[in-house]
Amino acid sequence: MSRTERRAPWLFLSPWLLGFAAFTAGPMLVSLWLSFTRYDMLTPAEFVGTDNYRELFTDPKVATALGNTLFFTVLHVPLQIVLALVLASLLRRAGRAGGVFRTLLYLPVMTPPVALAALFLLLLNGQTGAINDVLGWFGFTGPNWTTDPAWIKPGLVLMSLWTVGSTAVIYLAALTRVPPELYEAAELDGASPWRRFRHVTLPMISGTVYFTVIVNTIASLQVFTEAYVMFYGNAQTEAGRDDSALFYVIYLFQQAFGSLRMGYASAMAWALFLVIALITALQVRASRRLVHYEGEVR
């Protein structure tokens, strides 16, 4: 390989590398430095050692926000995965109408998050919202989804399923790649539909499921926009809210731009980075036993 040929890939990569250095790696390093300082954006940063990190362990709101975020993640990710899998399985059987249903399923994903939040704030209103009206037709008295501390997070999980289409289309693509002869062989062996799903479908799409679990988990741990718009976006929505919708990134944002504590907010960001890295590492470890790649020899 000539020298020019060796250099060529780097030249093609260089725009991305420059962008990564300037807009991702650089700010990350700066935020790492800031996390050891007291900095309000307006006066010079003052080095405070590990004070910010130590405060993370004594600030009760950090524990509350982290608990809320984990609660949301634990509910949202499995529900999103299961519902997406069910919808993808149904779509696969939709035949010639599949295109229409695929489009319909994906359309909600295109809704801007702010519009989605405003819409669900109306739908989920416990006194006047449509969701409780529908529950009422079946004899159920719905909760105050947007104001009752016990129901705010379940309400947000319900809302988050609105965008299940993005995961469902990924599963649909994976399902179509499962060799039909595997199903035929299983059927000849007398496998029930459940056993065919459990022992053929699931192993064959486990790589895709693994990918969506990781991506959805990371996104859930960083949940911000919808909850912020619904509950913290302005004085009117924030007034009278307790901390039941205070997700970690919302609290981080409040510390940064509400209390002007950039150093503390940076420490919070790095702590979240470590939490996400830890959870992802656990998922990677679990995947070695649970995920099957076609052609893989163990």
Partner: peptide, 12 residues
């Protein structure tokens, strides 16, 4: 009434 119901009603 409860604050949850009170506020939800006001929000509407």
């Amino acid at each position: 009434g409860t604050w949850a119901a009170f506020k939800a009603f006001k929000d509407g």
